[in-house]
Write a protein that binds this DNA or RNA. Sequence first.
DNA 1: GACGTCTCTGTTAACGCTAACAACAATTGG
DNA 2: CCAATTGTTGTTAGCGTTAACAGAGACGTC
Lengths: 335, 335
Amino acid sequence: MAVHGPAMTDVARLAGVSHQTVSRVLNGHPNVREQTRLRVRAAIAELGYRPNGAARALVTGRSQVIGVVAQNTTLYGPASLLAALEQTAAQEGFAVSVGSVRNLDHRSISAAVERHLSHRVAGIVVIAPVESAGEALERLPKDVPLVTVDGDPSRPVPLVTVDQVAGARAATQHLLDAGHRTVWHVSGPSDWFDSVGRIDGWREALLAAGLVPPPLMPGDWSASSGYRCGQMLARMPEVTAVFTANDHLALGVLRALHEFGRRVPDDISVVGFDDVPEAAYFIPPLTTVRPDFDAVARASLQMLLAQIESGTGGALRQTVAPTLVSRESVAPPRR
Amino acid sequence: MAVHGPAMTDVARLAGVSHQTVSRVLNGHPNVREQTRLRVRAAIAELGYRPNGAARALVTGRSQVIGVVAQNTTLYGPASLLAALEQTAAQEGFAVSVGSVRNLDHRSISAAVERHLSHRVAGIVVIAPVESAGEALERLPKDVPLVTVDGDPSRPVPLVTVDQVAGARAATQHLLDAGHRTVWHVSGPSDWFDSVGRIDGWREALLAAGLVPPPLMPGDWSASSGYRCGQMLARMPEVTAVFTANDHLALGVLRALHEFGRRVPDDISVVGFDDVPEAAYFIPPLTTVRPDFDAVARASLQMLLAQIESGTGGALRQTVAPTLVSRESVAPPRR
DNA sequence: GACGTCTCTGTTAACGCTAACAACAATTGG
DNA sequence: CCAATTGTTGTTAGCGTTAACAGAGACGTC
């Protein structure tokens, strides 16, 4: 480990210039003679020189690193988002440092943010889908570029979010259009904004159709809780259409219905949310709502970079519309 | 953005000591008077001082960051591993920087590693499940602590891996024990070591039982390819037991069998690999092999930290045994 | 031909921290 | 009571980079 790589001065010596000229070449400064530039590049290649990010970060005050705070990066949504974020960041020459937290409470978030600030990240993306995260963010130093994803719409913080309401409305409307008299909803945990938005969209669509929403069935994103809700739904003969807050809940519901001999879509139609890659292979293939994680990642990074470059901390907002993916789990109700 | 936080000298001034004493307090140096230590801590708290990781990295030669190179972090396995790695690293005071790559070819990997080295990471974990990754790793500077996960067993690089062979053997044996005459296998892509190991384990178990392995059905991890294979399996009356290289393949197989009216487990038994959280809610609940990602993460980090601290680059090897999770997708064959 | 104006390059001074050494007091041993 | 040791603090010198300024030519303009 002891051996450190060559430094800028070594390159400079080999190329017969000053270290500052090397720096200029590296940073694409215009005023360098072509011939010099080539000599420097050759020296860099010959020595296998690699600029020292730490030194650069020290002098410029910020590193080429973006910190991401997220919870539960095993779930499909967050994992996809993280991956997309990393891809996009890499294209812009930024590395991504993950600070995943077990709970999205105030303390955990603050700690994760502290860690990032300690490394002088250029900016922070917080995937903060729950209420408790909001408070932590307000107390943050104002001078750190920050973007939240799927966060609290009511806080004055730059926010990129999937349009949960529109997605849920589309899902519900799709079931109504198929002829169902009403639509039941298995929701996510009530402290997630995603859940709240999807509940709102579902309710809106029903109200707009002049219907009274049936009781809400609260779940927690897991197939397990979907299964529990499904066991209840299966017992109620009047239920013909269910919208679940994500695909895993739908999977649980599907299995419960199957066990009770309620056929999908013949007896009951089901729509999910997320379009996990397996959704097309559920029994039956699941109609679902697909959020565009790439678009969310692009939008948030763009927003963050704008802040980093301008130095302004604008409080923008951007929503990304999801699309309905129609498969075989929806059919008109039997009469 | 302009405002930088307080530096060590600011803390020192407030506490009435030299900046070096502050440094000592921060690094837990023993020879500091208790009273001084408290004064310094108070000053740190009052100013909201945060040490500058970049400066520290510059002078010590390495940052408290571990670089992870991974592909396809959306898949359940890699995502879980990444999350576990991050959790474990955080406990040790390390941040994790992700360099996810689209392809695990030589160039992509090298580029990702370069990025990490540029930031002077303390060590690198490469989740390198395919052949092409191996070459890239051999050309790496020898002086950077490195651990590979699920990499090439035949290369002289520190490696932590799930015992794929044992897991596959257990899955196959489980089916044989249930009374099946043979076991078919839907594999993952042939350039993944995970796939190869699982194929080997399957084959071993069959050969040990004096059986000739039936033809291999190659898939690519996706439910979609599982579905395609399932369509063929369903058509062959002699098939009574299938082991798939992961749970998503199993999902595709299950659906194909369902479509063809072949009941699971009555007509055909199925065993998967990974134990994704939804596996218990497939129709029917899936018997599968559960790798312990936490253990893998702990082992690899421990191995990496050992290298970092000692300065030695030992070529250790460690495998983590997976466990069989028995559910309802396996039953004795009908006669 | 003197003078400003470019273009290119070098010199110097930070950035915030740790390591090495120096300095001084307090304590111990003879 | 002096020397040697130990504990505690301060001083200085970098780490490798960028920013700010300065200087040397080349060129055009009056």
